[in-house]
């Protein structure tokens, strides 16, 4: 299956990089799905939004201000900032729809997701793909090429992409574990647990939902932005099925620990994303067709939710058989 150990390491590292980058979306859902109890179906579109906004800043940013003399790295930093801002704006729209305009939570996500497809195409000027691969005519600097240049002559040159992904995940986990302990963070958690109680604490659940969705969507957009730069190309279909993949990671991570410190649970969500990528990478090596990714992720989501259900059903079945046997013995003893 693997030609050499080095081959295995490369595969592992790639799975780790992708796991970390997609893990950011899982962390976003950790906030919206696990904490706020909102299933945010605008995730796919928001992921693509981050991807396209980031790519446009990388490719066209320098051309917008040709005389500014701003270095190229400035635009790679700006791509991240802009993608996250765009993401939080999308989250704001989803939140306003469900808290102020009476649209059901699930429907609000779906509607925004649909609209984002057009928005994303419009942002890229109707290009289906935006290429960030440097050619002999033009160089593009992404956060990954920046990191590569920085680490060029160190022993970690091979791991330059990994460091970017690690840094992003570490920052987001740090942010979440601190943020969820603040008063607004606690209010967001309480909104998912008992909205009545939030109201009786003189806090408007509409406000906490809005803040929560803005933040989670900005993390989703960061995830999309980083993935596009990692692959050196934005594609309008980059976000399809991301919500299911992220949900699968979230649920795999949740298998290990349901209660506990936020930081540990968030870390496990990313571990879940890595496990998912690893399983997928191995499956690809075993000649699973590439286009099966989404089917696999759908199956994983269903399994992680329904396996505990079946285990319970199995226990009941076992108990019933036992009861029948006991009754049978009692009847025989009577005769």
């Amino acid at each position: 299956m693997f030609e050499s150990f080095a081959d295995f390491l490369t595969l592992g590292q790639n799975a780790l990089e992708l796991g970390l980058i997609y893990g950011l979306t899982a962390l976003a859902l950790f906030l919206s799905y696990s904490m706020l109890n909102v299933c945010d179906l605008s995730t796919d579109g928001c992921f693509t939004l981050g991807s396209v906004v980031g790519a446009m800043f990388i490719v066209y940013g320098p051309a917008w201000f040709p005389d500014s003399g701003l270095p190229l790295w400035f635009w790679s930093v700006m791509s991240i900032v802009a993608a996250m801002l765009a993401g939080s704006l999308s989250g704001l729209v989803t939140a306003v729809l469900q808290t102020r305009m009476g649209v059901q939570s699930l429907l609000a996500g779906i509607v925004v997701n649909t609209a984002l497809y057009s928005v994303n195409l419009a942002i890229s000027g109707n290009q289906v793909r935006v290429n960030m691969n440097s050619t002999f005519k033009k160089t593009y600097e992404t956060v990954f090429t920046e990191s590569k240049a920085l680490l060029q002559d160190t022993p970690f040159a091979q791991q330059s992409s990994l460091f970017v992904a690690l840094a992003a995940v570490a920052l987001v986990i740090l942010f979440l574990s601190l943020f969820l302990r603040t008063r607004i963070g606690l209010s967001i958690r309480a909104t998912g647990s008992n909205p009545d109680m939030v109201r009786s604490s003189s806090i408007n659940p509409a406000f906490t939902t809005t803040v929560g969705l803005c933040i989670s969507n900005s993390i989703t957009a960061l995830s999309g932005c980083l993935l596009a730069q990692h692959q050196k190309v934005h594609d309008i279909n980059i976000g399809i099925g991301v919500v299911t993949v992220a949900l699968a990671s979230l649920l795999i991570g949740g298998v290990f620990l349901r209660r506990g410190p936020i930081a540990v649970r968030a870390l496990l969500v990313v571990v879940g994303a890595f496990i998912f990528r690893m399983v997928y990478a191995v499956a690809l090596r075993l000649n699973m067709p590439t286009n099966m990714l989404r089917a696999v992720s759908a199956v994983i989501v269903v399994l992680t939710i329904s396996v505990p259900h079946f285990i319970n059903a199995g226990k009941r079945l076992h108990r019933r058989r036992q009861a029948n046997r006991e009754r049978g013995q009692a009847v025989r003893a009577d005769h």
Partner: peptide, 24 residues
């Protein structure tokens, strides 16, 4: 109805106390 079951006693009380700013 009056408490958030998934959160600790401390977190529940912190919300009820409602002291400080949003980021405290």
């Amino acid at each position: 109805r009056g408490t958030a079951p998934d959160m600790s006693i401390e977190d529940n009380l912190a919300l009820a106390a409602g002291k400080g700013g949003w980021l405290s």
